[in-house]
């Protein structure tokens, strides 16, 4: 029986990929390039954030231009908690997720009453609002941002101050969340949001409460983005308003498109390509954005399926 919604991952390839990711720090240590473990960690975190945006844009068809706000909300929340003495990652990171979810609830509740380009604009505007509020408040460090004095504590014999340990924790969270997402997308809720993407009007006309569905999806994505933000804050050791600039939202969208909107691993791939390219290019030129811009333009124009379909048709 045909299943157009099904995300299939070949067990062999998946196991190999996970194994490779597990072995990566060991391999990097062996060739004395352990510096790159932090980059790999950053790629995983942004891969997670981009995947959450892919859920919204690629699977549900909602073009949200303010995703960076949820990342920022999570990052600042985690930073404030750690600075305030709440050292535990078990508090800081879920709080980040909660902050992202709550902000997404507020933004989504208002924005989802609009459609099409108005939705894009209002999500952008909300993100700007959050950005400007954060910049204006001195307790949040204003333009300079805040220091995160140390990495959070996670217990269980794991020390997040070690880059390798941090990497493995992030990897575990990443794999877990992706597995949950896949389960979710392959089941009833996943069919429903993809139905919304395909024909929202008819979804409502056959009895789905589409507003509620879209909002749930939006909030879930906000939560994951907030979690990502919390992890970034801990990894970088600081948070700044630049995390929330609309160009950041744009870059997240670029990750989703480069990797493939509506493809399960699209966010992950896009993050890897963009952050990897940035790392490589910045050694050679300060004008790397030019290259990114040109590549993005070409990808967007030339993409054979047309990005408007947003679905990888798994034919037969």
């Amino acid at each position: 029986m045909r299943d157009s919604f099904h995300i299939s991952l070949s067990p062999g390839a998946t196991a190999a990929a996970v194994a490779a990711l597990v072995l990566l720090p060991i391999a990097l240590n062996a060739v004395d390039q352990s510096f790159y473990i932090v980059l790999a960690t950053r790629i995983l975190i942004f891969g997670l954030i981009a995947t959450s945006l892919n859920l919204v844009i690629g699977y549900a068809g909602m073009i949200s231009f303010g995703h960076a706000a949820f990342v920022g909300a999570g990052a600042y929340t985690a930073a404030l908690l750690i600075r305030g003495g709440f050292d535990s990652a078990w508090i800081a990171w879920p709080s980040g997720a909660l902050a992202g979810a709550l902000l997404a609830l507020v933004v989504g509740a208002v924005s989802l009453r609009t459609r099409g380009v108005y939705f894009i604009m209002i999500t952008l505007a909300f993100a700007q609002m959050v950005y400007y509020v954060i910049v204006s408040l001195k307790i949040l460090g204003g333009d300079d941002g805040l220091n995160v004095p140390h990495r959070p504590v996670i217990g269980l014999g794991v020390d997040l101050r070690s880059d390798a340990h941090f990497y493995y924790v992030v990897l575990a969270i990443f794999v877990l969340l992706l597995a949950v997402l896949r389960r979710f997308l392959n089941a009833g809720m996943g069919r429903a949001i993809q139905g919304i993407r395909d024909n929202e009007t008819r979804m409502e006309a056959i009895g789905f409460a589409t507003y509620r569905l879209k909002l749930s999806c939006f909030v879930a994505a906000g939560a994951v983005a907030g979690l990502g933000g919390g992890m970034i804050a801990a990894l970088n050791g600081f948070v700044s308003p630049s995390l929330l600039q609309w160009q950041q939202s744009g870059l997240l969208m670029v990750m989703v498109i480069l990797g493939g909107a509506g493809r399960f691993l699209g966010g992950m791939l896009g993050a890897a390509v963009l952050l990897g390219a940035d790392e490589i290019l910045s050694d050679y030129t300060t004008h790397g954005s030019l290259g990114v811009g040109i590549v993005l333009l070409l990808v967007v124009l030339v993409s054979p399926q047309g990005l408007s379909s947003l679905v990888r048709r798994q034919l037969g």
Partner: peptide, 22 residues
């Protein structure tokens, strides 16, 4: 609908399944 409003990218069975799921 006067102009057919379907879930174009999904199979006929999946279309109906959505309605039943609802």
């Amino acid at each position: 609908y006067q102009i057919s409003s379907l879930f174009a990218n999904f199979s006929v069975l999946e279309n109906i399944a959505l309605a039943i799921q609802a």
